[in-house]
Structure formats: C-alpha cells, structure tokens
Amino acid sequence: MTHLCAVTSMALYVVATALMLVQLWRQSRAGRTLRLAGGAFAGALVLHTATLAAVLIDPRNVLLENGADYFLLVSWGVACSFALLQRRLNYPIVAAFLIPAVVLFMGSSSYLLHAESRSLLVTEAGAQGQQGILLSLLHGVPALVSVVSLALALVVSVVFLILERDLKARRGTSLAFAGPNLQVLDILNRQLVQIGFVAISFVVLSGSLWAVSQQKPVFTADTSVVSGLATWLLLAGILHARLVLKWSPRQVSRLTVLVTGSFFAAIFAVMVAAGRLTHAELLL
C-alpha cells in the first residue's frame, strides 16, 4: 500500500511537470492547464506525505538515519518548500525544474526499490538507543534543511541563468517574460544559501558535540559526515563569492549550479557506483 502510494505520488509529480511544460510552451501563467498541474502537484504531495508517514512510523526505521528514508524526506522537504514559496515562485518555468528534482530525490530513495532497507544504526548494536529524538531534531532536521536549501538553490540558479540569458539576448516574447524577475531569483538564491549555511553549520557543530560526548571520533569516512562537511564548504564558497568578492548574480548562479550540481551528482554517482541505493550504508 505504501509502495503504491509512493509510485502514484511520483506519477502525479511527473504529470504536473508535463503540464507545467505545456503551460511554459504556451507562454502563459494562467489557465486550465496550470490549475490541473496545481491539482496534480497537490495530490502528489498528499500521497507523498502519506508515504513518508507510513515509512516513519515503521518501527524498523530510525528517523533520519536510514539513507533511503532520508532522501524521501528531502524530496518531501523540496516539495513542501515549493508549496510554501508558491507566491514568489508560482511560475511554470520554476515548477518545470523543481518538480523533477522532487521526483529525482524520491525515486532515488531506496525504500521504493528495497522494502527491506535498514538503517545503519539499527544494524549496530546499541546505536539506536543512543540516537534519541533530541539528536534527530538538533542534528537531522537542520541537515535536512541544508540539503533542501541546496536543492532549491540549484533550481533557482538554473532558472535565473535561463531567464538572464534570454534577457541578455533581447528576446522579449520567449522565456524572458515567463518567470519571476531576476532580482527576486537572485535574492531568493542568496536567502537559500544563507539558510542552508546556517543549518549546515549547526549540523556540523551538533554532530561534533554528540561525537565528543559519546567518545567517538569527530570525523569518520561516513558519507553523511563527508557530505555534511562538503555542503558546509560549498555553501561557504558561494557566500564568499557573493558577499566578499562581489560576484555578479550571473556568476554566483553559475557557481551555485556548478557546486550544487556536482554535489548531488557525486552522491548519486556514489550510490550507483556502489551498486546500492542506501547511502547511509556506504563507507567511502
């Protein structure tokens, strides 16, 4: 039942993307197609939420520690952020990039492929007890926020580059008028990177404190630790380029696309190369 829910949700996301693309092709921000797309997205989000709830109440899983579930949660976070940002991002061009990102994260969640996937910590005796809800909240939630911010920043930057290219090329009727204005996208990109940076800094700090308190090594070659530090460095780099080096919005967007794209590509590549889809089980 959970599996059916997830697959239906993904199918609805795909339908919403297709409808948004049709609307984009028609160069319009209103109409029946957009309403249908909105309906498909809302339906998908409801099913997505149901899937996530079913997975999280499963006693075999530990909140935020199972890599597969974590990706399901990230995809849900991206979808919810989009729903919350509708006022500023209610454009087919944004949705046409953002919803596929949701599908990509959701599809990569190993839960969909391996119903028996287990948490790394569940397999380690006693680890589950040490985890606790508090740590999940202090460590896992900010980590989720940072990854969702990174994914959103990637999409926003891609849309910015497309629209900016069109405006530079002086093509008025095509994509130039199809999206939000450049300054809004640039400000949003900056805010997302700032939120992500604060969140990931908190993740690194809380993780280190937890490791010290448990007399464990602060750094291990675990993907979650490595990817956490990599995220911190990437976000710091983007912020430095913007705030200190005063790069232009186009340059910052290019950098954002490059680093966030590489980050997600690396994670997916590691998963594929290792022949597994549960990244928490991977040791670099």
């Binding site: 405006l167 450049l182 300054q183 400000i187």
Partner: peptide, 23 residues
C-alpha cells in the same frame, strides 16, 4: 490573451524593467 502583450515601445521597456528589478 488579446490584451496581455504590450504593443508600445515604452510599455515593453517597462515590462523589461519589471523582469529585471523586483520593485
């Protein structure tokens, strides 16, 4: 969309400005 696309040079200039600046 009969009335949706600006057809004067000055209107187009304003629309472009709106696509570049948030406010």
């Amino acid at each position: 969309e009969v009335s949706q696309h600006g057809v004067s040079v000055s209107y187009v200039a304003v629309r472009l400005a709106q696509q570049i600046f948030s406010d």
